[in-house]
């Protein structure tokens, strides 16, 4: 996060529109937020008979989340132009997060209700020994 010399797309936007990358990033974030809210509200794509399925909502929410997350991290948090060590620091927990999502989140969907009795509240060790 902070000031930096503009280059590439940022420079082009600045010279063509007079607005910096933060402004455009802000607009993109606002637009995509509207888009994801709209995806949930509409059962069909407006003007068509194409149904927005649960899977389509999943995909839209994940893609929009990635775009918004990138916009905030790369431009607002300035990871794009800061030394790479900060990006590596931010990404360090990714392995942990993947393990959490895969190992806990997705490995056994029935795990919560099928927990062994000794994992559940009010289990009396003395009674079952």
């Amino acid at each position: 996060m902070g000031e930096h010399a503009t280059k590439g797309l940022e420079h082009w936007l600045m010279t063509k529109t007079g607005k910096d990358i933060y402004f455009w990033n802000f607009l993109v974030l606002m637009f995509f937020t509207l888009f994801e809210v709209g995806a949930v509200f509409f059962e069909k794509i407006p003007g068509t008979e194409i149904k927005i399925t649960k899977m389509a909502v999943w995909i839209i929410l994940i893609v929009v989340g990635i775009v918004k997350g990138f916009g905030i991290a790369a431009f607002f948090m300035h990871l794009k132009d800061d030394p790479r060590i900060y990006t590596r620091t931010a990404l360090f927990p990714v392995l942990f997060v993947i393990l959490m999502l895969w190992g806990i989140g997705l490995s056994n969907p029935a795990g919560v209700t099928d927990l062994p009795s000794w994992c559940t509240p009010n289990w009396d060790y003395a009674e079952t020994r």
Partner: peptide
């Protein structure tokens, strides 16, 4: 970085329950 881990625990436990 540590905060990412904290929120990942919430999200993974939610995902775990939500898929069920």
């Amino acid at each position: 970085m540590s905060e990412i881990m904290v929120f990942a625990t919430f999200f993974s436990s939610y995902l775990r329950m939500r898929t069920e």
